[in-house]
Amino acid sequence: MGIAMRETFGRTLQLMKDDPRLVVLDADLGSATKSLMFKSVCPQRYIDVGIAEQDMVGTAAGLSVCGMIPIVSTFSVFLVGRALDQIRNTIAYPNLNVKLAGTHAGVSVGYDGASHEAVADLAIMRALPNMTVLCSSDAPETAAMLKTAYNYQGPVYMRISRIGVNDYHDENYKFKIGQGEIICPGTDCSVIATGIMVPEAITAAKLLKKSNISLCVINMPSIKPIDRNLIIRAAKVTGAIVTAEEHNIIGGLGSAVSEVLSTTVPVPMQFVGIKDCYGTSGDYNVLLQAYHLKATDIAAAVKKAITMKNNM
C-alpha cells in the first residue's frame, strides 16, 4: 500500500514552500487534510480562518487578485457544499488563479459517514464554467497534479482521497491537464477510471484475463477538460466502454465520457459508481464493497458492456 494521498498532499505543499506567492488556507481541518504540514515549515503563509469555508474561499480570492497563489483545502464535501456560491461567483466567474483541494472525497472517508462523504463534487465543479476539475488516483499522481495545478493559470478543483492505494505511478510520472493515460492496452473493452478506482480497474483487468477478456485500462485524472481524443480512440478500438468512479454516476466521469461518445462514437457503456445515493459509516474497504466499487464490480460491468457490444 502506498502512502495516503492526503499525506502526499501535505508533503508536496512543504516542498513548494520556497515560492513566495504560495499561501495555504485552512478551515480548521489541517490536521486531517495535512495542510498543517505546510504550517510547520512556513507559518507566515499559512492562514487558518477557523471553521468558516465561505470566508476561506473569499479570502483566497482577495489574495489571488493581489498576486498570491492560494491553495485552499478542506474536506471536499464542505468545500464544494458550503462554499459553492463563493467558488461560483468569486473564483470561477472572475476566473481567478485559486486552487481548491477537496480532500476526503467519496465513501472511502469511512467511519465519518454520509455527512462527510462527497459524492457529487465532480458533478458540481464540472458544471462551473472556467473551472478545471482533476482527480488523483495514487500518491505520485497527487504530487504531480498539485504541482501542475499550481503552475496552471486559472481556477482548479482537485479531488483527493483520504486513503492510500497501491501506487502504480512512480516519481517520474508526468501529469498534464486534459490528458489521460493508457495503463494497460486491451481490445475487448476499455475501462476509463479515475481516483481510487484506477487501481481497482487494474485488478479487474487481471481478473478478466483469466476469462480471456482483454481489457484496456485508462486513467482519466483530468475530468475537465477531458481527453476527448483518447476516449474516442478507446471506443473505436474496443467498441465498449465502462467508466469507474468513486462518485455519483450522475454528473461525474461517466457523464463526461458519455457526453463525448454520444456525439462521436456511440458505443455500449456501463457506469460503475455510486448509484445516486449517500454514503454511510464503516470501514472503507467494506464501504467500497457495499457500494459496488471493487474490481469484481468493474469486471461484471465489463462483461455486460461486451455482451451489449456483441448483441448489436
Binding site: M56, G58, G62, V65, C66, D85, Q86
Partner: peptide, 11 residues
C-alpha cells in the same frame, strides 16, 4: 462576500 475578499487583499 466582499469583506472576506478584502481580508485576502489586505493579507
Amino acid at each position: 462576500q466582499g469583506l472576506s475578499i478584502g481580508n485576502g487583499m489586505a493579507l
